[in-house]
Amino acid sequence: MGIIKKLPVYAEKVPGGGIVTTSIEKVLHYGQACSVWYLLFGTACCAIELMCTGAARYDFDRLGMIFRATPRQSDLIIVAGTITKKMAPRLRRLYDQMAEPRYVIAMGGCTVSGGPFYYDSYAVEKGVDHIIPVDVYIPGCPPRPESLLEGCLNLQKKIKQQKLSDWQK
């Protein structure tokens, strides 16, 4: 069970086995990067830009990104909008319910650092990285769809650079 986690360890013992690991690594992460399904999750105005990016003009689908209505099927959660202290445990729960490997994009000023408007509010979480580990930060208020697309391309680059040995953690 879970051979993929032990594969690099086993393959190292065989001469030339590293080729197997690296080839699988390449194919696996290429496929993963080209089918990043994101969770339907939007809490504020950034969600409008997210919807716009998903619609016909910016066409998220061409990057292989399709929205999913359940965390069980999603690889990515785009935190689009202000996260209040009340929302924070829910965000954590959603993140927990996603299957690994899972990725997080913090979209907009509110998720990066608490936001340009709410920075002195007692009710707002000052950055989602206090709750969940963030892979890509996209500043902006809200970021334009082009920024979101660039963020997603950066995430794809990041996924492609992964190693199989990362899975052992």
Binding site: G2, L91, R93, L94, D96, Q97, W167
Partner: peptide, 19 residues
């Protein structure tokens, strides 16, 4: 089942009811 990594823990396996 043989290949995939599996990492269940209580917070992950609870029912999904919109968080």
């Amino acid at each position: 089942r043989l290949i995939r990594p599996s990492n269940p823990y209580p917070d992950k396996t609870i029912n999904y009811e919109c968080a």
